[in-house]
């Protein structure tokens, strides 16, 4: 009996971390870019036509600007972002030891402001916060997503996965019902994507501005007539973490353009 168990355990180990039911295998993962038309792709690919780059330019200014009572700029600690911030956005949300939970890049920026710059936190979706996270994210363009690799994140990835699978709202739909089971089909004329968050914060033509992944998740939630979680809530962070770990391997596109 024990021998059988050992064999079964060995088989499980050999097959490695098996994909969970309904999950998209890594070679079949496609970013939203693959679902767009040629015009929107061209807009994203040309840095002088991509409106997200306007925010990146603003973010570059903010990076160098001293703020708060400590009179420090981001650059005073982190130096040249092209080196120091490369790959950072690709591993967020990341585990914060002091808080004992994962935090998003926006939350990290605000923690830095509070702890090191002695400045007031920037509100979610404010132009300055989006500009800073777009600037930081831009340094990771082309870097494969690695979020969720830290073993300490495991329970939070699992929490996010449960939320992704959980039906909610008056339409009683889960994220998985569209983004795992029905991508490549259409919803009211628009293509249903796999929901791979490779380019956030991204410029959405519908919004006419840059927006965070949390904003996107909240609009999906109101779309299924559910009560959206608050910005920065543990549920949204867990969902964001699960989505990023689900997109592992895809290259970062920040700032992406989406219809």
């Amino acid at each position: 009996m024990i021998a059988w168990r050992a064999i079964a355990a060995a088989i499980l180990l050999v097959t490695g971390p098996a994909l969970l039911a309904g999950e998209i295998p890594s070679d079949a993962r496609r970013s939203g870019y693959a679902f767009m038309g040629p015009d929107t792709r061209a807009m994203q690919d040309d840095d002088t036509a991509n409106p997200g780059m306007l925010f990146v330019l603003d973010g570059e200014q903010l990076w160098k600007k001293t703020t708060g009572t400590a009179e420090k700029a981001c650059a005073d600690c982190h130096g040249d972002a092209r080196g120091s911030m490369k790959g950072v956005a690709a591993r967020y949300p990341a585990f914060d030891k002091a808080l004992g939970r994962p935090i998003t890049l926006d939350q990290r920026i605000n923690l830095c402001r509070a702890n090191h710059q002695q400045a007031t936190p920037l509100p979610y979706e404010s132009r300055d916060l989006l500009a800073l996270s777009a600037f930081v994210g831009r340094q990771s363009r082309g870097v494969p997503i690695t979020a969720g690799e830290d073993p300490q994140l495991e329970p939070f990835v699992e929490q996010g996965r449960k939320l992704f699978m959980q039906r909610e709202g008056q339409l009683n739909l889960a994220c998985t019902n569209c983004h795992d089971d029905n991508f490549d089909k259409r919803l009211a004329g628009a293509p249903i994507t796999q929901g791979q968050p490779a380019g956030y914060p991204l410029y959405r033509l519908e919004w006419q501005t840059l927006g965070s992944l949390e904003r996107r998740l909240r609009s999906c939630m109101s779309g299924v007539r559910a009560q959206a979680y608050d910005y920065g809530s543990p549920e949204l962070v867990a969902l964001e973490l699960y989505l990023m770990s689900r997109a592992r391997g895809l290259p970062m596109e920040t700032p992406a353009v989406r219809p």
Partner: peptide, 8 residues
Amino acid sequence: MAALINVP
């Protein structure tokens, strides 16, 4: 305000 200009 930020502007992006593309002139050869």
